[in-house]
């Protein structure tokens, strides 16, 4: 037993690392966002907000999150329920449902590009069914709506898995006896789900939603692959400010905005879905 120093020794590398590569750059972003050439200013935010693209960008990002996350939540709950109820093929189903977890957002964008492209599989299907005569241009600059739908579908496809895994883990923590008790007292399967599963799953739901909402604000490569610049989102604009427009102060301001929105929603869900310690399993 090496006394009291050992745990600190073991934590030191990770702590130092996080200080240098997490806390320090975070402070740098904040600093760069509110300065220009060393002087304090809010110009960076004004420039960012003054861009004609800005309102569209914010609207797209928020709308995407607002549509994608609830659908994902429902699908993830469905997947998790299926996985925890399956008797045969349980691990196979879990593996299949979890596959998108390992797929990068860029690859997901490319996967759905194969479907929505003008010469893609959706057009092939539609024309062979006689619904369309000529292949439709789903992802052109005039078809904002279909781009949005394609991006939303790709996001739902890609990032439901992460919620599903969290929820399956959470469901695994709920003792079977509660369901049996509820069944004995006459609850139908639906009632058991609503009255037992959902309330006891709240901590997991909270984690899943927070994580997913943050990721939703980070949407970037899927949009780049499917919509190019036709569907501007916050992360993409940040990238543009840094590279195309070569203004890293505004890019920092933009990054700070994403951080602020993320933190705001995290706090919101922490509060709304709060579970008192005594009420946990």
């Amino acid at each position: 037993m090496h006394g009291k120093a050992l745990p600190y020794l073991l934590l030191m590398p990770a702590t130092l690392f996080l200080c240098i590569f997490f806390l320090y750059p975070f402070a740098l972003v904040a600093f760069e966002a509110v300065t220009r050439d060393g002087a304090f200013t809010l110009d960076n935010f004004r420039t960012m907000a003054g861009s004609w693209k800005f309102p569209v960008t914010v609207r797209n990002t928020l709308l995407l999150a607002a549509i994608v996350v609830p659908i994902q939540l429902v699908m993830a709950l469905l997947m998790a329920s299926v996985v925890s109820r399956l008797e045969t093929g349980r691990s196979a189903a879990l593996y299949v449902f979890a596959i998108p977890l390992g797929i990068s957002d860029l690859a997901a964008g490319l996967i759905w590009l194969a479907i929505f492209d003008q010469s893609g599989f959706l057009n092939t299907l539609l024309s062979s069914l006689g619904i369309v005569e000529r292949p439709v241009m789903f992802l052109g600059y005039q078809s904002k709506l279909t781009i949005f739908i394609a991006v939303a579908l790709a996001e739902i496809w890609r990032a439901t898995a992460i919620m599903m895994v969290i929820l399956v883990a959470g469901m695994g923590l709920i003792p079977k006896e509660y369901y049996e008790a509820a069944e004995v007292f006459g609850a139908s399967p639906w009632q058991r789900f609503v009255r037992v599963t959902l309330p006891l799953l709240r901590p997991s739901l909270q984690t899943a939603i927070i994580l997913r909402v943050i990721l939703a604000f980070e949407v970037f490569a899927v949009v780049a692959a499917l919509g190019g610049t036709n569907l501007p989102v916050l992360m993409g604009e940040t990238y543009n400010w840094q590279f195309t427009l070569q203004d890293r102060n505004v890019a920092a301001a933009s990054a700070l905005l994403i951080l602020a929105i993320s933190i705001g929603f995290t706090l919101f869900f922490l509060r709304v879905l709060r579970v008192p310690k005594e009420a946990r399993i």
Binding site: P25, I210, M235, T238, Q242, I263
Partner: peptide, 15 residues
């Protein structure tokens, strides 16, 4: 760290 869009930190780190 999980409440932050971490890839964004690449911006200041670039400098």
């Amino acid at each position: 760290t999980r409440a932050f869009p971490l890839p964004l930190l690449a911006l200041p780190l670039a400098v």
